[in-house]
Design a protein around this nucleic acid. Sequence first.
DNA 1: GCTAAAAATAAAAACGTTTCGATGACTGCA
DNA 2: TGCAGTCATCGAAACGTTTTTATTTTTAGC
Lengths: 344, 344
Amino acid sequence: MTATIRDVARLAGVAVSTVSLVVNNKGRVSKKTEEKVRQAVAQLDYHPQHSARGLVTRRSGNFGFILSTDHFSQAEPFYTKIFLGTEFEARSVDYYILLTTIERHFNSSKIPRFLLERNVDGVILVGTVPHKIVDYIAERRLPIVLVDYELPRMIHSAVLIDNADGIRQIVHHLHELGHRHMAFIGGDMKHPGMIQRCKAFQETIETTGLPFDPDLLLCDQETSNIETGYVAMEKLLSQGDRFTAVIAANDAMAVGAVRACQSRGYRVPLDFSITGFDDVESAITSRPALTTIHVPKEKMGATALRHLAGIIKGTAYEGTRVTIPVRLVKRDSTDHPRSHTLSA
Amino acid sequence: MTATIRDVARLAGVAVSTVSLVVNNKGRVSKKTEEKVRQAVAQLDYHPQHSARGLVTRRSGNFGFILSTDHFSQAEPFYTKIFLGTEFEARSVDYYILLTTIERHFNSSKIPRFLLERNVDGVILVGTVPHKIVDYIAERRLPIVLVDYELPRMIHSAVLIDNADGIRQIVHHLHELGHRHMAFIGGDMKHPGMIQRCKAFQETIETTGLPFDPDLLLCDQETSNIETGYVAMEKLLSQGDRFTAVIAANDAMAVGAVRACQSRGYRVPLDFSITGFDDVESAITSRPALTTIHVPKEKMGATALRHLAGIIKGTAYEGTRVTIPVRLVKRDSTDHPRSHTLSA
DNA sequence: GCTAAAAATAAAAACGTTTCGATGACTGCA
DNA sequence: TGCAGTCATCGAAACGTTTTTATTTTTAGC
């Protein structure tokens, strides 16, 4: 039915091995025969059969993509977009992606089948994942790339975003607008990225020479969603009029903070400037549209895949951290502080 | 490194072919040798190698899962959950899922790689997909199962939800509460499911003996999101006080309708009862929590996979439609109509 | 034009599995 | 005890590649 390498060889009038050489761009083949072979390939619509190839190369041609179930079914398509980037990039390097989700709590009886069966050549792990599964994979000597997550021990490759720089950009932006008293809503500190954002806030405040008020630093939440932001903002408001801007560690909390303001009759950005982080869908759709830090999600996924493929080809080193730059997106949730406007 | 079938055979003291028989539960093997083989398999942690198996069986052991890019990166994890159901079910029948997205507009240069390379044994297509890609796959004689979508020509298998019954349940629920004048917000009529919901509304109104008012039937939108619902509700409200309940064809539009009410100072469900459809995340988190129709998304995915596997095994027929039942979930967005409450 | 070296091509083995036909070992019946 | 028939097991071929080694062709230097 479908053409095999023999058919191509016969049609092109060359040996099977020559066809293989051409198809894989290996070895030196004369221009002339290469052309003949390529023609035959095109004519027969030949595609090498994965399984046959895998049998001899001892590679599966697959990468595993592991994500926690709650990350995957979370409302904002943050991780979904990372996957999209990975999948897209996989097409160009000829790998298939096997996506699977795991529960938050590692359960050795629920190990992804592609690991048990050794049917992947490497694994991409995205977001918060149980440490044990990382160890399990590492024990099996499979290359690993973490995305938007890192483990204390720095032995695995990771694709990260420049959280510190993002926060710096935000603080500077607000500072330029004239804000001096900024509050920070930190969210769930179990995620390393959140810790970085929180730390970066404190450091930037300090280096910029702004006053630091510990009451305006809220970093002890359990979650990082809209509700979290709402509650945190209410707490800040109840503390009195000590700030003009609020930096939320992600967009969801920023949206919550905006709502809390609005339901108390405050206007954003007139009374308070509020910023997010991540630049997810709701940063654009919510009113006012959020000033936030754009995180290139697809690019993270693509970078992870490229890196993983590199490790296998031998052109990249395992254990490298790749940091993806982020950039400020100014929208409608930030403006000069009220007092500043008045004095101007 | 990893154990092969020969290792198992040697350890168990039997022929390679016997091990194969045991592992695949084929042919008749004596209890005694079966036991020996199983022991050896366990001891060596043997897993058949996909590629070797695929080479001889001429099966890939993969199913394709195709979804439009916008469905996949949509805020509500509706399709994501369908995928989860599929993936989970795939584990038990020993198939891998290759997930890929396609653009809304069919582009023959962007055909999923697993189709070009014939690396799947069947394909699940979810939500609205270009007809051309369905034809393309069918031409290649690959089994197809559509999920939450159907094509005019009824030649492909499809897993659908009982839209008509869902609408019936809602109308009856509202009727029981005492509502007689119901409005309907239909959303994007390009999706067959939306058409069904709209039709079912009209039919149920009629068979229940309720008055039908064409002004209360809004079925000419282009989209089906929160904004759509908001706008539609404003239009309804501007038409005067002719209804006490609003049935939105999905949860997003219901949320929009609720917001429109609230921003005009109406209370839900006191002034208007509003219902959704789908039972997505926001049906639970939005205030008031929505009375809606629960759609078992994971189950749809699982059913699709099972059906596809059945077609290949020869235990299911291609071209079958499987309808998944739905059920009403009563939450806080519906109550007796105001007049009814007063008169009671 | 000859030879040695380099480049291009070919031939064959190997990868791990399934499957088919063959072989051997039992069973039950005469 | 012998024999047909059934049941359990085995051996070997085949699947479509890549890769290594061998062979042929081309090139370059004299």
